[in-house]
Design a protein around this nucleic acid. Sequence first.
RNA 1: GGGGAGAUACCGAAGCGGUCAAACGGGGCAGACUGUAAAUCUGUUGGCUCAGCCUUCGUAGGUUCGAAUCCUGCUCUCCCCA
Length: 437
Amino acid sequence: MTDSSAYTLSNLVEELRWRGMIHDMTPGTEEQLAKEKTLGYIGFDPTARSLHIGNLATVMLLVHLQRHGHQPIALVGGATGMIGDPSGKSAERNLLDVETLRENQEGVRQQLEKFLDFKASDNPAIMVNNYDWFGQIGFLEFLRDAGKHLTINYMIAKDSVKKRLETGLSFTEFSYQLLQGYDFYHLYQHQGVKLQMGGSDQWGNITTGTEFIRRKASGGRHSGEAYALTAPLITKSDGSKFGKSESGNVWLDAEMTSPYKFYQFWLNVADEDLSRLLRVFSLKTQEEIEALEQLPNPNEAKRALAEELTTRIHSAEDFENARDASTILFGNAALERIQRIDEKTLLEVFEGLPQETISRSEYESAGNVVDLLSETTHQLVFKSKGEARRMIQQGGVSINKEKITSTNAEATFPLLQDKYLLVQRGKKNHYLVRVVD
RNA sequence: GGGGAGAUACCGAAGCGGUCAAACGGGGCAGACUGUAAAUCUGUUGGCUCAGCCUUCGUAGGUUCGAAUCCUGCUCUCCCCA
């Protein structure tokens, strides 16, 4: 990949390798991808109404596939989502109800559309839902048609199953790999899909598919050749799980994780993880990424990564607001700078902050800062007065960028725009209090 | 079914009649140092009208001037034997 314009069928694997996105491939995968335009798919089960950045890594596999001229298919698991994948799960899962699943499918579908080009002339991305074929199949039909081709012995040997044999695994979850295998077969038969990709935890399920195809389809008009490629799970240098912030999963849905938080997540990535994340998530060229990696101050590279992803997943405007909010909240920008911002911008910029609205009389009746930051603002900042007191004594609280020095300070602070208070707890936690008449 | 051990704050774990709002470790939070990083150091980690008071040690009672600590019932967990 020395020439950034050289996206060819054949160097896809080369690029993925450089990006550290290949964990495992079945033999012949690289040759297949070099030989011809190949249809490849990844399945996403609609377990939530949004994807999170943990899913993003595999989405990127599809993106690269398409950029190199192959044809990506995103499969939404309307059917498999009803079953529950035992891979990587230590206990039986609760089933989602049909209504929730339907909503989730729609959300996931919309998000995938942001990454893939469904209008490309040569290799438009395709979206399929496995409920479309599973919904029609009867149980007996499925047992005769699919179940006959794999042995229990084979299925039990899978890691995801073996690990659960001790603690228990329902027949439903046990069947999951057969469904996923059948998906692959179905796409192979009907659309000529030859490749399935996914995270490394999916290896077992994916190879059930290649095996299934080999046994069922070979000898006919198809060769029975199908391939698997998995990407390593993203790990963090400190051992904690990637994709979680202190407040939980980082979602792609702006309602669930604000663009501001999303932007902040990437800025706060550990130095040691930065290079790997750039390679997996950035669509910049190898030269550009290597240049970023060389920078003496890793923050610049983090900012570039944060900008690229916030823009792609949300919008240029969301990115600008997140960036502006960050400069104001973390920079040395003095009080006058914030006071000068007009109300509309202020609200836009601080949209992602936790907020609470109180009435002017409530504000005026607060005895001191401690009351204001706990009771009066309905536990937005502190859940008890003791906590507020402690934090102030430790010098961790600022209002409108000014440090609070005494717990007895009167609660009379100049409101921004005659309405807002910007409260800071520690270095990274900001809150917006709105006072209304 | 028989025998034994245990249930302590976010987690692990001390305490075994007053000096216990409860050692210690982890985690969390904050401060210093920095780069909104890591490492390190420091403080903090039930509530309040905060140098004082109130409510906490599985649960319900009891003994005692006084109980996390002793007694009884109940619930749950673990181990050993059948």
